[in-house]
Amino acid sequence: MNTIEAMPPESASDTGSPTGTSPRSLISIKSVSKVYPNGTEAVRKVSLEVPGRPQFISLLGPSGCGKSTLLRMISGLERHTGGGIDWPTTPYDSKGRPLAEIGFVFQEPTLMPWASVFDNVYLPLRLKKHKKAVVRDQVMDALRMVGLEKFADSYPRELSGGMKMRVSIARALATRPKVLLMDEPFAALDEITRLKLNNDLLSLWEKQRLTVIFVTHSVFESAYLSDRIIVMAARPGRVIADIGIDAPYPRTEAYRTSSAYNEYCKEVSGLLKQAMAGVEDEH
């Protein structure tokens, strides 16, 4: 009962969506594996359907279970060594890369210290050869979404850790992506800043209608944010559960103290313990 592979989404089916059902997935991940050149098997046969309607998906698991590897394979930063990742509704370029607008947020803000906040957010558009004057409003929109429009001319070293993270999120949103991939984005922040950014991210997600895939190792964070949690186990990295969180949005502080939230936390904690137990057995 260690590997439950290719578990279908349960309550996360499209029935909960106000926009109705979409027959085709946005991303279709089938039995994807990754073995690094040094022989580390980071991910084994992970299957996952990301539906066309915007979902907030958390990848939850102990460190080393391949969450980052999976996220990087979805983004195209890393090649998978087995299985397939398809974007059924997205056109592909001549090199076989999906022409999907993807935003990526790392654990560190990863800003260019020599560039202003505006220029940092403008970067993805600049790399796609958009003239600054043409996309100025688009950049300012992204900054407005994270509440930093007043800091466009500041430099990263003048900002606090939380603000730098917001700039990083604004940069990921600048190209108006359909998918936002986030790799433990708030893990390095203090508790109060993290809670605030959680709320801001949620309201942003509800307004922008984009798909978020959010890597975290915090049960509480994933149960608060997501409408679907993928629980992963390590050695080798695999999916052991795929559960829906049926609490309605917008979620507020009231949800954090509700019994439904507590139940979900308990359930997910149990699954996570199961995931960790598998590792200890091997030692």
Binding site: G76, L77, I102, F104, F106, E108, T110, M112, P124, K128
Partner: peptide
């Protein structure tokens, strides 16, 4: 150069 920044450039097809 920061490794993540390099990857970001790669991601956006620089």
């Amino acid at each position: 150069t920061d490794r993540n920044l390099t990857q970001l450039f790669h991601l956006y097809g620089a």
